[in-house]
Design a protein around this nucleic acid. Sequence first.
DNA 1: AAAACATGTCTCAATATTGTGACATATTCA
DNA 2: TGAATATGTCACAATATTGAGACATGTTTT
Lengths: 185, 185
Amino acid sequence: MLIKTKDRIIESAIEVFNQDFSAPLQKVADNANVTRRTLHRYFKDRDELVTTCEREMEISCKKAMIAAINSSDDSLVQLENMLNAGIDCGAKYSFFYKLRQREGHKHSKSNKDSEDYNYIYDSFKRIIADLQSKGIVDNHMTVEWIQNLHAGIVNSTVNANETDNSKIKIIKKFAWKSFINGISA
Amino acid sequence: MLIKTKDRIIESAIEVFNQDFSAPLQKVADNANVTRRTLHRYFKDRDELVTTCEREMEISCKKAMIAAINSSDDSLVQLENMLNAGIDCGAKYSFFYKLRQREGHKHSKSNKDSEDYNYIYDSFKRIIADLQSKGIVDNHMTVEWIQNLHAGIVNSTVNANETDNSKIKIIKKFAWKSFINGISA
DNA sequence: AAAACATGTCTCAATATTGTGACATATTCA
DNA sequence: TGAATATGTCACAATATTGAGACATGTTTT
């Protein structure tokens, strides 16, 4: 048992729902190489599965993002690592971001969660502001657009990776180059 | 009757399915301000609706893209107009691109269709190659990545536009700047 | 206004999806 | 090995979605 069944189902669900939010649970089960019956043993219903996915995405993405932020004192390195973190999280990050947009993050969530989220968002803003003050990043671009672009490029990378699986490293390089040049002054 | 009901349903379906491919038809009907019964009068079943959406997306996107290509002899202008065309097509372009990826364009389609598509794809490649030869676009980037990025940025713009509806012109500017700098040598 | 057309309401059957019980088979672990 | 655990198979009811008929109500056209 390489990965626990429950986790495999969650990963599967994130992949499937990222592409097709209302996909039948059978698809999720198939994708996880599991019977639908087994899926239902772990998750009471669709809602519970989605909620679990959300939590899992939050935890993974936040962890990766916070690690990226803590990886250096250099804003530029931090930003690059944040992009890489997003790419490494793959569908997790894509779906997480989509859900946030769709729901307008209606979920008030726990204090800890929104604290973390604010920390990440504030860090992102701080990093961008710093790079703008240094003349590296274009002053005219809003942080909203930059964040949006960040998510868009991660998504492109996930897609590119799904079709063209061979050269993830090269694609990562392209992604960073496109991102940083795309927002450079 | 500003827009014909049938067209409104198609637009609605493209919007809805772009976000949630397996969404129930009731959502499409609601989004189009129409009864589900009316929707079924125009479309025999879900399949027919999706197929019609595909055709509509192909026609609009192709038209816009071909116009962009024909808008100038200058590759750079052509490329900018192709990005703008994608943005103007909005969900149409997003969904079209997603479907193509999902299906691996299994549909052999008509000759005319694949002719057009090849024409657009070849034009895109030619434009990129030209800009690369002129030292404007990075030589190392593959046309596949650049195409992928193009779609990703269009998608980001569509998303940005959904939340932040006020300043489409500014967002368009950001998009072009991010795109061209993102692939520049 | 009358005819023609478009849409809504209500209804219903067909189908698909969902969630679960009962029991058979693995698979893991002491 | 044998008990405990995990998963699969089959069956089934509950619910949701789909597609369409019959008829009422609007809306446009002549």
